[in-house]
């Protein structure tokens, strides 16, 4: 059991520092600093990309035109839009205190956050997919990672959320995928405008209780400040932004909105599909196949509500164009979108 939970509130910081401050904490905890709960609110909007994700998933032209910086973090998950309507939190512990199973570690480290949401008046739950939700909507975007010998789990209190901009910063296949993604985003990502002060106090109490120690306000050590300056340079470099190499990239352009809820755009031959998938079933599909001769809408209706493994069977009734569409569907793999 640790002696103390250090609590650092970085307050309102630049987009770059809203990332590098807590990465510096992780290096500090790895080097022997106490477990730390931190908070940061970005002063301006920006886009943040998960460690393995491909930069081509972000509409860099749009971001540049709007002055939105793009940074790559060292934890998982997809590209996300961040702004001052989101209070970010990070819990960081020595890896030795965290279960070796990632699934178990995430549950253990997110449970106190759920308690804090509830204490702040939000009816939050940790669902079977490991997401913090209120009803069916995700209310906290989380990511996790091990940085040297420290494990960090990040999340946010979403006080307000610009669904349109959060969709616009993504590089999507076209207007149809953008429209479908925005629709799912509005339904499955929800702001919970709780009082930030209450939430922060509840977070400190919940994590201290979980760790069996006392929460104590703290600050970065001299060493952590030096590390943060180095991280500022690293995170600002094109080399770091480019990513770690050759990640697995599905053929389809896929966007996950929350666990089990995603859109994809894929093509095969002269046929193309854009679809929304909820709970493993096609909710909505937009099909383009020249050989369908006006039956695209009928095929799309036939797919609505069908489980993904049933898609090929349904499209078999539409001859060769249906087979091409089925091949396009087969390139999508929602299980592997982090």
């Amino acid at each position: 059991m640790p002696d103390v939970l250090r609590v650092i509130d970085f307050g309102r910081v630049t987009p770059l520092r809203s990332q590098t401050c807590w990465h510096a904490v992780a290096y500090g905890v790895s080097a022997g600093a106490p477990p730390t709960l931190s908070f940061a609110r970005p002063s301006d909007p920006y886009v943040c990309l998960g460690y393995h994700r491909d930069l081509s998933e972000v509409d860099l032209g749009y971001c540049a035109a709007r002055g939105l910086p793009v940074y790559r973090r060292m934890v998982g998950g997809g590209p996300v839009y961040c702004d001052e309507g989101q209070l970010f939190f990070q819990i960081c512990l020595p890896a030795a205190l965290v279960p070796a199973s990632r699934v178990e570690a995430l549950r253990v480290l997110l449970r106190p956050a759920v308690e804090a949401f509830r204490a702040a008046g939000v009816r939050a739950e940790l669902d079977a997919d490991g997401e913090i939700v209120c009803g069916e909507a995700k209310i906290c975007g989380h990511g996790a990672g091990q940085i040297e010998d420290a494990v960090v789990v990040c999340g946010n209190l979403i006080e307000s959320f610009d669904h349109t901009r959060a969709t616009r910063v993504l590089a999507l296949d076209g207007d149809e995928q953008r429209s479908q993604t925005l629709d799912l985003m509005r339904r499955y990502v929800m702001a919970t405008p709780a009082d930030a002060g209450t939430f922060k106090s509840a977070m400190a109490a919940a994590y201290a209780r979980a760790l069996g120690c006392a929460a104590q306000p703290g600050r970065l050590t001299r060493s952590e400040r030096t590390t943060m300056a180095g991280l500022d340079a690293r995170f600002s470099s094109q080399r770091w932004l480019a990513g770690p190499g050759t990640p697995a990239r599905p053929a389809a352009r896929q966007v996950k909105v929350r666990a089990g809820v995603w859109t994809f755009a894929a093509s095969h031959g002269r046929s193309a599909v854009v679809a929304s998938v909820v709970g493993g079933r096609v909710e909505r599909a937009h099909l383009r196949a020249p050989g369908l001769n006006g039956r695209a809408a009928a095929a799309a209706r036939a797919l609505s509500g069908r489980a993904l493994p049933e898609v090929a069977g349904v499209l078999a009734g539409f001859g060769a164009p249906g087979a091409e569409l089925a091949a396009a569907f087969a390139t999508a793999d929602g299980r592997r979108i982090a």
Binding site: Y51, H52, V75, G76, R102, G143, A144, A338
Partner: peptide, 11 residues
């Protein structure tokens, strides 16, 4: 190396 699963990047 690194492995990512469940949005958790770990060594």
């Amino acid at each position: 190396g690194q492995l990512e699963a469940a949005k958790f990047v770990g060594p």
